[in-house]
């Protein structure tokens, strides 16, 4: 499966990376954000949300677990870091959010793959050597609907992908 690696050098670029995906995501899509605390998952979501027309400030939903934002497309922003069991993801209404004509962004979503659809975009945020704010983001389209968009995804992310 193709993995695209993007590199960013600070929060503003991570936000811009999120914004670059706004034209690509469609209602019903799932974006899973993986990576350690402070790696840029919420910052990325802020950029994506703003570009989707969300006016309010997007913060980490670690304590609320799920937060709904209204833009030109609705955005469900989840953080499953505090959940212990897959069933708790169902208890917060995951199935309803996944079937709601909204874009669903899930921080730490790689931990709950068994209860997620087989089509999703996985973004893994990594700390890399260099500046404190330098990050590498491995972007992996999973499932037919996302793999079909691989070329568009590469174009959208080209700014952050230097030839290795």
């Amino acid at each position: 499966m193709p993995v695209i690696t993007a590199r960013t050098t600070g929060p503003d670029e991570t936000r811009a990376l999120g914004a670059a995906l706004a034209d690509l995501v469609r209602p019903g899509d799932v974006v899973v954000l993986a990576g350690d605390l402070g790696a840029g998952k919420t910052t990325f979501t802020q950029g994506l949300g703003a570009a989707l027309g969300v006016a309010e400030r997007i913060t980490s939903p670690t304590f609320t677990i799920a937060q709904e934002h209204r833009g030109r497309v609705r955005l469900h922003h989840l953080d499953v870091y505090r959940l212990e069991n897959l069933r708790e993801a169902t208890d917060v209404g995951l199935d309803e959010m996944l079937d709601d004509e909204a874009v669903v962004v899930i921080e730490w979503g790689d931990r709950i793959l068994p209860v997620l659809p087989t089509d999703l975009l996985e973004m893994r945020f990594r700390f890399v050597d260099g500046g404190d704010d330098d990050r590498a983001v491995d972007v992996r389209p999973v499932g037919f609907h996302w793999i079909a968009r691989s070329a568009a995804l590469e174009r959208a992310l080209a700014r952050w992908c230097e030839a290795a």
Partner: peptide
């Protein structure tokens, strides 16, 4: 009344190790 699917623990080696 929740008719629920079988449950499983989430693997949190990262979180619990932090």
């Amino acid at each position: 009344m929740y008719l629920r699917k079988p449950d499983a623990a989430i693997g949190w080696a990262t979180r619990d190790g932090a």
